[in-house]
C-alpha cells in the first residue's frame, strides 16, 4: 500500500534519511523505533509530504507521489491521518469544530452530517461531553484522543502516528494507547513512531529499528525485541527496555 524506494533527505547539518526503502502492506501495523535524531519523524513526514525527500520515490497505492503537485499531495493527505506528538489541535475551534473543519472545508460535507460524524467519533473515544469545550480545557490525553478523532473523521486508509504519547503525563498514556489498540483491532493500517515498547510488542506486526537515517533491522516484535541481530539494536534496546 505504501512503498518507499531509496529515500534520501538531508538537513543542513545532518543526513536525516540515508537510502531508506520500505514497504507497508494493508492492515499492517508497523512500529518505528530508534534513538532521538535517527530520522523516524522525517520518514513519517516524507510519507505525507510534510517533508520532501531529496531523492528516491514514494508510492502510495501504486501511485508515485509527485511532491511538486500540490493537488495530488492534498488528495493523498486526505487519505492519510497524521497524529502529532504535540496534538496540534486548533485552539480557536471547539472540540467538535476541530473535527468538522476539514469535513466541511475539504470534503465539502454539509453541517449536519459533519456534526454527526464528529459526535459519533467523540462518543467512541469517550469525549462526547467535551464537544463544545475549547481544547485548552482538555487534558493532554484528551487532546490527543481528539486529534486522533480529527484524523479519523476523514476516513483515512492509513494512520501515521509520530510519538503520540511522548508529550503526555504517564497516567494519560494508557487512554491514548487504548484508542490506538482499538483502531488496530478494527484493521486500520498504521505506522507508529513510538517509545512504547509494550505497545509495539502487543499490537504491531512488524518493528523497524532506525539509526542515523538508516533502517538497521526490521522484523516481528518477537524477533526484534528478543533476538536482535545488530549491535546497535541491542544497545538501543538495553537502554529502553
Amino acid at each position: 500500500m505504501i512503498k518507499l524506494c531509496n529515500i534520501y533527505k538531508q538537513f543542513p547539518n545532518v543526513q536525516a534519511l540515508d537510502d531508506v526503502s520500505l514497504q507497508i502492506n494493508e492492515k499492517e501495523i508497523v512500529c518505528l523505533i530508534g534513538p532521538s535524531g535517527s530520522g523516524k519523524s522525517t520518514l513519517l513526514r516524507c510519507i505525507n509530504g510534510l517533508e520532501i525527500p531529496d531523492k528516491g520515490q514514494v508510492f502510495i497505492e501504486d501511485e508515485l507521489v509527485d511532491y511538486k503537485n500540490e493537488k495530488q499531495l492534498r488528495a493523498l493527505r486526505q487519505e492519510m491521518g497524521f497524529v502529532f506528538q504535540q496534538f496540534n489541535l486548533f485552539p480557536h475551534k471547539k472540540v467538535v469544530e476541530n473535527i468538522t473543519l476539514a469535513l466541511l472545508e475539504v470534503l465539502k460535507k454539509d453541517e449536519e452530517s459533519a456534526n454527526s460524524i464528529a459526535l459519533k467519533l467523540l462518543d467512541r473515544i469517550g469525549l462526547k461531553d467535551k464537544a463544545n469545550e475549547y481544547p485548552s480545557k482538555l487534558s493532554g490525553g484528551q487532546k490527543q484522543r481528539v486529534a486522533i478523532a480529527r484524523a479519523l473523521a476523514m476516513n483515512p486508509k492509513i494512520m501515521l502516528f509520530d510519538e503520540p504519547t511522548s508529550a503526555l503525563d504517564p497516567e494519560m498514556v494508557k487512554e491514548v494507547l487504548t484508542v490506538m489498540k482499538e483502531l488496530a483491532h478494527e484493521g486500520m493500517t498504521m505506522i507508529v513512531v513510538t517509545h512504547e515498547i509494550g505497545f509495539a510488542k502487543e499490537v504491531s506486526n512488524r518493528v523497524i529499528f532506525m539509526d542515523e537515517g538508516k533502517i538497521i533491522e526490521s522484523g516481528s516484535p518477537n524477533v526484534i525485541f528478543n533476538e536482535p541481530k545488530h549491535e546497535r539494536t541491542k544497545t538501543f534496546l538495553s537502554k529502553v527496555l
Binding site: Q86, F90, M154
Partner: peptide
C-alpha cells in the same frame, strides 16, 4: 506554531484555507 500549518496540511487543506481558517483567526487575536 508550525504545527498549526502541519495539522491543516495533514487534513488535506490548501495554503489559503489554512491561512484563512486556522492561521489568521489566531494571528488576529
Amino acid at each position: 506554531e508550525a504545527g498549526q500549518w502541519e495539522a491543516g496540511k495533514s487534513l488535506g487543506m490548501s495554503y489559503f484555507k489554512i491561512m484563512r481558517l486556522i492561521i489568521l483567526p489566531q494571528a488576529f487575536k
